[in-house]
């Protein structure tokens, strides 16, 4: 199956000035050579710790952040080549739902006005059509037209996130990035919203990029998973395979840390020592070697290549180098 979205060797480097008067300059590699492909109608999840570059990846895919280099191919078209105006129009096909449902809505605008704005920006519908479309999308996300009269501060967190989802979906996009859409919500509301997302995906045949640090959520919702660490992709693969048979030592450690609901079940946790190194000062060679329980001498000097190990699985680790 052809991917709807493919990114190749995507990089986002920031020049960080340090020292007095910013004389010393340092490069922060927020994204360093990320490649992945997302199939139509599927959910690709990105997991990783804070600061691993997941959110940057999500925003860079829509060019809300301009990448330093690399290509983003959406429906066979390299969107890096698009001008500002065409990129703006492309927002009807590519949308994003943000993490914070509290801050991501304009506090001065009613829900209806917030939802109408994308339609007014991109189309010249009549007032009735706009009202109808807003009412429809509210129903799709499980809200009523009464909610449209309210301001964001009058809604609960779950309702606000539904508004955020409605706002992204009202343009009928093909591809939606969800940037930790449930991490700000209560667990009970999380389940509702996740079910809603799955339901919408099958009804509207949407393709998702789902960013999360919660592995249980990712396991539940994703078809394909990518594991990030310090701006680099460590491993990608179909969700089932990756969870049952993690290849990369980092993935193994992450999966062993998922809490087990059954207290009697024996489990072996791989506890990683130390902290995530600062991205300003990323380790040489494999960025994970400072914390890797299986580190080898070459790991600290040679960057592992991005290798295909089986049909759908890719990995960057010296353990699998031939």
């Amino acid at each position: 199956m052809l991917p709807i979205l493919e990114i190749k060797d995507l990089k986002k480097h920031y020049a960080a000035k340090t020292g007095l008067f910013g004389r010393m300059s340092n490069t922060v590699k927020a994204l360093d050579g990320i490649s992945l492909a997302i199939e139509k109608g599927k959910t690709f999840a990105i997991v990783g710790e804070s600061g691993s570059g997941k959110t940057t990846l999500g925003k860079t895919m829509l060019r809300l952040i301009e990448p330093t280099s690399g290509s983003i191919i959406f429906n066979g078209q390299d969107i890096m080549a698009l001008g500002t105006e065409s990129m703006r129009k492309l927002k009807t096909d590519m949308q994003i739902v943000f993490q914070d449902p509290f801050g991501s809505l304009d506090p001065r605008w009613t829900v209806r006005r917030t939802l109408e704005e994308p339609l007014r920006t991109h189309y010249s519908y009549s007032a009735e059509t706009i009202t109808k479309k807003v009412d429809e999308i509210l129903e799709v996300v499980g809200l009523t037209p009464q909610h449209a009269l309210r301001y964001p501060y009058e809604l609960s967190g779950g309702q606000r996130q539904r508004v955020g989802i409605a706002r992204a979906l009202i343009l009928e996009p093909q591809f939606v990035v969800f940037d930790e859409p449930v991490s700000a919500l209560d667990v009970s509301i999380q389940a509702q919203v996740l079910t809603l997302l799955q339901d919408l995906q099958s009804r509207l045949s949407l393709t998702y990029l789902f960013i999360s640090h919660d592995l249980s959520v990712v396991r539940y919702i994703s078809d394909h998973v990518g594991v990030m660490y310090l701006g680099k992709m460590m491993e990608t693969g179909p969700s089932e395979q990756l969870f049952s048979n993690p290849l990369h030592p980092y993935t193994e450690a992450l999966i062993s840390a998922i809490p087990q609901p059954d207290p009697d079940k024996r489990r072996e946790r791989i506890v990683l020592s130390g902290e995530v190194p600062s991205p300003r000062n990323a380790p040489s060679g494999c960025v994970f070697h400072t914390r890797c329980p299986k580190a080898m001498p070459q790991c600290s000097s040679i960057q592992p290549e991005w290798l295909q190990v089986s049909e759908n699985r890719y990995i960057a680790c010296h353990l699998y180098n031939n």
Binding site: L90, L105, L171
Partner: peptide, 11 residues
């Protein structure tokens, strides 16, 4: 964040 949202809407 809502400024970023507005940008994502395609404004």
């Amino acid at each position: 964040d809502f400024m970023r949202t507005a940008k994502a809407k395609g404004l």
